[in-house]
């Protein structure tokens, strides 16, 4: 069974989106745009799968109201992961491989601005030994960044280079929250947010949503001129204990990349919410300098929680569907300091 991405849409990445934490206001137009682009109606979709988080919204069952945006009548085949929707895409891919559906619509949404995001993310940490100290997500990434700097794996200038490249690339991405031409010297003259990280090293706080359409074999060919065929799809998780991991690399990203086979990639859309993680992931996944990195600008230019990983895969697929790439990868991450990583390899034919 062959499965392909045949469509992608994302809501504008915004610091304060005009949306409820249910995401409905973002999802309704998004579904409409995505379905219309392929001449489909919501009743044509065989399987719906989503990713979101109750802690982002501050209450239990926050994903339930999002189902309203589907218009789930007659009742639909539907599922939800409490993860970035890139993993919902994995569940949908598997579902299509079983033959139980021939199309799937996968979506993720997050209103990151509703709470104090850095502090909320501390609740992902071990609830006995770590979370009671409330270490925030940026501080943990900063510990990782310094380890790599100490080991000579990246410098603050190389980190700033990533920000410069990402923001310039985002100029061609109308959904991006941040874009523009900046120079390294200006960035490095800015104060630290969490020494050794400056603002440009950290993804912005973003409200947003993303949706991806999948279809199998002939259905994909019939609906899309140049489907982005999934040739490899793998994910791995590492121990969460950051004291037990070599934080300067990512075993899980390396394994996922090897399993998905990233040889011959033209374009990579990497979900790196911090500049040093862009470098770390490129090294861990073995992507050489010929690979075009994050033509969308990546998470550093817009990081809607629980949708940003899916958006990377959608952006990678867009490069294929538009004929700009022959073989592309989309990557997603989750958990403190890149604990969990997913790689989806897509190909045009």
């Amino acid at each position: 069974m062959e499965v392909a991405v045949i469509g992608f849409a994302q809501a504008p990445n915004q610091r304060h989106g005009q949306t409820t934490t249910n995401g409905v206001e973002m999802l309704v137009p998004l579904f409409q745009e995505l379905l219309t682009s392929r001449g489909l109606s919501r009743k044509d979709i065989g399987f719906w799968c989503s990713g979101s988080s109750d802690y982002l919204a501050g209450r239990a069952f926050s994903f339930v109201t999002a189902v309203d945006a589907i218009g789930a009548w007659p009742p639909t085949m539907e599922s939800h992961v409490e993860m970035d929707a890139a993993w919902a895409l994995y569940e949908a891919w598997v579902k299509l491989l079983t033959g139980e559906a021939d199309t799937a619509l996968v979506y993720g949404f997050g209103k990151s601005s509703a709470g104090n995001l850095r502090r909320v993310m501390a609740l992902q940490l071990d609830p006995y030994l770590v979370a009671p100290l409330w270490p925030d997500s940026v501080s943990i990434a900063a510990l990782q960044a310094r380890l790599g700097m100490q080991a000579g794996l990246w410098s603050e200038k190389e980190m700033a280079d990533v920000a410069v490249r990402s923001r310039a690339a985002a100029l061609s991405n109308p959904a991006a929250q941040i874009s523009g031409h900046v120079n390294v010297e200006d960035l490095l003259s800015q104060p630290f947010v969490a020494d050794p990280l400056r603002a440009h090293d950290c993804a912005p706080i973003t409200d947003g949503a993303a949706a991806v359409l999948l279809a199998t074999g002939d259905r994909a060919r019939e609906l899309c001129e140049r489907p982005a065929w999934i040739t490899g799809f793998a994910h791995r998780v590492d121990t969460q204990n950051i004291g037990l991991r070599d934080l300067t690399t990512s075993v899980s990203a390396a394994k996922a990349a090897a399993d998905a086979n990233v040889d011959g990639i033209d374009v990579a859309e990497i979900h790196a919410p911090f500049t040093h993680q862009d470098i770390l992931l490129r090294n861990a996944m073995g992507l050489d300098s010929s690979v075009v990195m994050n033509p969308s600008g990546g998470a550093l230019c817009g990081n809607p929680m629980f949708a940003a990983g899916l958006a990377r895969i959608g952006s990678a697929a867009t490069e294929i569907m538009a004929g700009r790439a022959g073989r592309a990868l989309g990557h997603a991450t989750s958990g403190p300091a890149l604990q969990q990583n997913l790689v989806c390899v897509l190909e045009g034919r």
Binding site: E82, A131, H235, V237, D238, T239, Q240, S334, Q340
Partner: peptide, 20 residues
Amino acid sequence: VMMPELFLADAIGATGKPLL
């Protein structure tokens, strides 16, 4: 606990493997 499967990865034997 937000997404407790993450801190439970070792206890549930998921470390090094795919986890949903």
